[in-house]
């Protein structure tokens, strides 16, 4: 499979604060990458960095974002505009806020079509209608004339997905698109997206704090903590044999059926604020395995080429059992 997105040592800063610190990952055609972390871990900022939609004063302060070999970090604004919505699309977290409340749905879809295609309004409208139908919105022709507030949250997110799919992009970045929705709707949207990207061989970066979503959806997982990717690899090895104590803690804190009756593990303390990152390993303040070296030296990359972790003392079988109890 062809690599279409290669992020290499990406750094994103807000003033003096590095929200994303030397993040590297790559995405192959049709692959689904789950980007996991708590709020404030830098996972959303990573997503917005790739499509270059950072809020002021955020900016990319280092590294490369190679998209089909083209470095997006140094791309012009107009160049980015031509890519956005066209080759790289994005779905946002809160569907109630992503559609302009004072514009008809068709206006918002037609303009998206015509931003990248030289077609007439009628043709653009036809494409918009088909896109709405494809994401499972009933009677799309009528719904086109509606306003966003006439849709439910789940329906609005479907509209947003339809807009993201309009130009059959190579990559879709989905920033917690199901978090704001009811559980049943979440599952619908999830399977819908899964089906759509598989049909079209679209690559997907799914940003979430929910490991259980990633388990069923992603081919590979990157776990972020305090602006860094601390563990990265194919989904099954990462979830079954986590190397990093943080990943391990995350998995332990997901309630599940086959561990009923056991106490839920928890990670002590709270996420380290990015602007107060301690020296050494950023996780050492909450890590049960931390040694002196973790407090002073930045951790090295451990284990093989496919499954890596940023840790001095990656988890081993015996130690893992110990922590679980």
């Amino acid at each position: 499979m062809k690599t279409i997105l290669d992020v290499c040592d990406l750094c994103t800063s807000f003033g003096p604060v590095r929200a994303v610190d030397r993040v590297s990952f790559s995405l192959r055609s049709g692959e689904v990458l789950g980007l996991v972390g708590e709020s404030g871990s830098g996972k959303s900022v990573t997503g917005f960095s790739v499509i270059r939609l950072l809020d002021q004063p955020g900016h990319i302060s280092g590294g490369r974002i190679l998209f089909h070999g083209r470095d997006l970090a140094s791309e012009t604004e107009e160049g980015m505009r031509q890519l956005r919505g066209n080759r790289i699309a994005m779905i946002f977290q809160d569907p109630m806020m992503t559609l302009n409340p004072v514009l008809h749905i068709d206006t918002q879809m037609v303009e998206a079509v015509r931003a990248h295609q030289k077609v007439g309004v009628a043709e653009a409208r036809r494409q918009a209608r088909d896109a709405l139908g494809a994401v499972g919105i009933p009677s799309p022709e009528e719904r086109l004339a509606a306003y966003p507030h006439q849709f439910s949250g789940g329906m609005r997110q479907r509209v947003a997905i339809a807009i993201a799919l309009l130009h059959n992009p190579d990559v879709i970045i989905a920033d917690e698109p199901t978090t704001a929705l009811d559980v049943t709707i979440q599952a619908q949207i999830l399977s819908e997206v899964q089906r759509l990207v598989r049909e079209r061989n679209t690559s997907l970066i799914w940003i979430t704090h929910d490991l259980s979503v990633v388990a069923g959806l992603a081919d590979r997982v990157a776990v972020m903590y305090s602006g860094r990717i601390v563990e990265h690899g194919p989904t099954d090895p990462v979830l079954d044999h986590a190397l990093h104590p943080y990943t391990h803690g995350l998995i332990g804190s997901v309630p599940s059926r086959n561990r009923r009756g056991q106490r839920l593990a928890q990670i002590p303390g709270t996420t380290m604020s990015i602007d107060r990152r301690p020296p050494g390993c950023p996780f050492h303040t909450r890590c049960a395995r931390a040694q002196d070296v973790c407090r002073t030296e930045p951790p090295p990359v451990s284990r093989g080429a496919e499954h890596t972790a940023l840790c001095f003392f990656p988890m081993e079988e015996a130690a893992r059992l110990e922590v679980v109890q």
């Binding site: 939609l53 956005r84 946002f92 931003a115």
Partner: peptide
């Protein structure tokens, strides 16, 4: 932001 993400001018 979403409008920008659509690639509008």
């Amino acid at each position: 932001k979403f409008a920008r993400a659509k690639g509008l001018r």
